[in-house]
Structure formats: structure tokens, C-alpha cells
């Protein structure tokens, strides 16, 4: 019964997302919604490692950067079609995640967070300084949109891209839900709750942690690749630590360890700074304050609060 109701809710949400472009008249909000949907993909990945496995990784934006640059560079140097380079990009990201995940998963808790943060710094520094490949701070321009001249859809139209990203975000959300429901997902949650016990019953926890880390990186790589082709322009600026913190914030605000959480959280982190624009330079302070207050007063996020409310109502009737 409860599960049916959840499906109905997700169905309604999906209908809402499909209708959204028809409801918004301001083009700029459609643009923000596309960005938010891209963030949904990245946040679902972040949620796998942070929300379910309990390891805070601060490299999600760095992995988005690897995805974005690899799809752009593959298109430029190997003349690959856009759809193919978007598909390959997550695997390039996975390669780097494997290399970095193995040593960093040897430390726990805060130290894992710091090591991943160091990776994000390394990625950023390399993107900034490896001019021959990345053009440094100036970035890469003229990244092609999907579809050629005689494509079925007009990819320059924001609405078209919105639906394209919506489909992928929905698929990736479904994939995250499948992973979480599977035996692997159960083991990830078990690792969060008591890693020693997981080891004690004979499960090699590090394999599952590495799986969660690499999968989350692939989500990020895909998000980055889609972002690159949407904006047609990338530079290192948007793949820094601040953006990785946004991914963490999205998971916390939305509700960590829930499937709905990252969706809510992603829209939150994209739209909130826009609304705080009036505050200008106070924005950073307010943003930090929201983060601190949210963590202290609603540690289970918006999805957690919503679930509590629903259960309370059900209990009463």
C-alpha cells in the first residue's frame, strides 16, 4: 500500500516535470530547470556514496569536470559523434575514479572526505594549467550540440534539451533506485550503519565501497558531459570544490539516503542562489547559514520531513 502510494507520487512528479516547460513563460527559468535536472543526475550519484554508504566524497564536481572535458576533447580530436562521446565520458570518469578510489577508501570518515577534496583540487589545478589540452582558464568553446544539421529535433531549442535531460535524469534516478533496492544497496546501507560488522560476516566491504564510489563518479561524469554539450562552453571555474559542496548540500537539504531527496535538493541548489541574488555579496554568508541551520534543525532533509508528515497523517486516520 505504502509502496503504491510512493509510485503514484513519482508518477505525478514526472507528469509535473513533463508539463513544466509549458507552465513557465520565462525562458531563463527553463534554462535553470535544465541545469537543475543535470544536477539531479550528479546528486543521485553523490547520494549513493554519501547518503547510502555514509562516505562524504567532495569530488563530485571534479568528476563532472572530467566527464565534461573528456566528451568535449573526444569530439574535437577524434571526431566522435556527440551521442557516442556522451556515452564514453562516464567510463573515462570511472577510470579516474577507480585510480583515486582505491587509495582514498583506505581511510574512513572525515579523512576520506579530505582526500577526495584533495583530488578535486588536483583535477582543478590540472584543468587550469594543462593548457595544451584544456586551454586553461579560458576553457573550451564551441562544443557541438547533439544532432547534426538535419536532426529530428531542434537541439538549439532549450525545451528540446530540457526533455532530453529529463529523460536521462529519470532513467538515472530509476537506475539509482534499482541499485539501492538490490543486494548491493543493502550492503551499502549496512556499511553505513556498521562497517566492522559487514566485514565480520565475511563481506569484502571495500569492493562495495569502491563500487559505490565509481558509480557515483559515473553519474557525475554523465552529468558533466551533458552539461558541456548544453552550454557549448566549459572552463575549470565550474568544476571546483565549491560546486562539489553544492552536490553535498543537494543531498543533505533534499534528504540523504532517499531517492526523492537528490531531486528536491538539486532544484534547491540551482534555484536558491538565484533567489538570494538580491543579497549580492551577502549571498555566500546566507548560503552557509542555510546549510548550517538545515543540518542542525532538519538533518533528514526535506524528503525526510515530508515522510514524517505523511506517516503521522496515516497514523491518525
Amino acid at each position: 500500500m505504502a509502496r503504491n502510494r510512493t509510485y503514484i507520487l513519482y508518477g505525478l512528479a514526472l507528469v509535473g516535470f513533463v508539463l513544466l516547460p509549458q507552465l513557465i513563460s520565462v525562458k531563463y527559468y527553463i534554462h535553470l530547470s535544465v541545469l537543475a535536472l543535470i544536477w539531479v543526475i550528479a546528486a543521485q550519484g553523490q547520494n549513493l556514496i554519501q547518503g547510502y554508504t555514509g562516505y562524504v566524497s567532495i569530488v563530485q564536481a571534479g568528476f563532472m569536470g572530467i566527464g565534461a572535458y573528456s566528451t568535449a576533447l573526444m569530439g574535437m580530436h577524434f571526431d566522435l559523434p556527440v551521442w557516442l562521446s556522451i556515452i564514453i565520458a562516464p567510463f573515462v570518469t570511472a577510470f579516474f575514479a577507480l585510480l583515486t578510489g582505491y587509495p582514498s577508501l583506505r581511510v574512513k570518515g572525515h579523512y576520506f572526505a579530505i582526500v577526495t577534496l584533495a583530488f578535486n583540487m588536483v583535477i582543478f589545478i590540472v584543468l587550469m594549467n594543462f593548457h595544451q589540452l584544456t586551454h586553461g582558464e579560458a576553457g573550451i568553446t564551441g562544443i557541438p550540440k547533439p544532432g547534426g544539421k538535419d536532426a529530428l529535433f531542434n537541439w538549439r531549442d532549450r525545451e528540446t534539451y530540457y526533455y532530453f535531460v529529463l529523460i536521462i535524469a529519470a532513467l538515472m534516478t530509476g537506475l539509482a533506485a534499482l541499485i539501492v533496492r538490490s543486494r548491493i544497496g543493502q550492503i551499502l546501507v549496512a556499511i553505513r550503519q556498521n562497517e566492522d560488522l559487514v566485514g565480520a560476516v565475511g563481506i569484502a566491504a571495500w569492493k562495495y565501497k569502491l563500487f559505490a564510489f565509481v558509480t557515483s563518479a559515473m553519474f557525475a561524469g554523465l552529468a558533466g558531459a551533458i552539461y558541456a554539450h548544453y552550454q557549448s562552453f566549459i572552463n575549470p571555474e565550474i568544476f571546483g570544490i565549491a560546486q562539489s559542496l553544492d552536490a553535498i548540500l543537494a543531498v543533505i537539504i533534499g534528504g540523504s539516503g532517499t531517492i526523492a531527496g537528490p531531486i528536491i535538493g538539486a532544484f534547491f541548489v540551482v534555484f536558491l542562489p538565484e533567489y538570494l541574488r538580491f543579497a549580492d555579496s551577502f549571498r555566500l554568508i546566507l548560503y552557509g547559514l542555510v546549510l548550517v541551520l538545515a543540518t542542525i534543525f532538519m538533518p533528514r532533509g526535506i524528503a525526510g520531513i515530508a515522510r514524517d508528515l505523511m506517516e503521522k497523517r496515516r497514523g491518525r486516520t
Binding site: L245, G288, L291, V292
Partner: peptide, 10 residues
């Protein structure tokens, strides 16, 4: 840790 990150921003 998240509080610490928020504090950093502030």
C-alpha cells in the same frame, strides 16, 4: 562536517 562546510562559506 556539513556544518563545518557551511561555516566555511559564512
Amino acid at each position: 562536517f556539513i556544518v563545518a562546510l557551511g561555516l566555511t562559506m559564512m
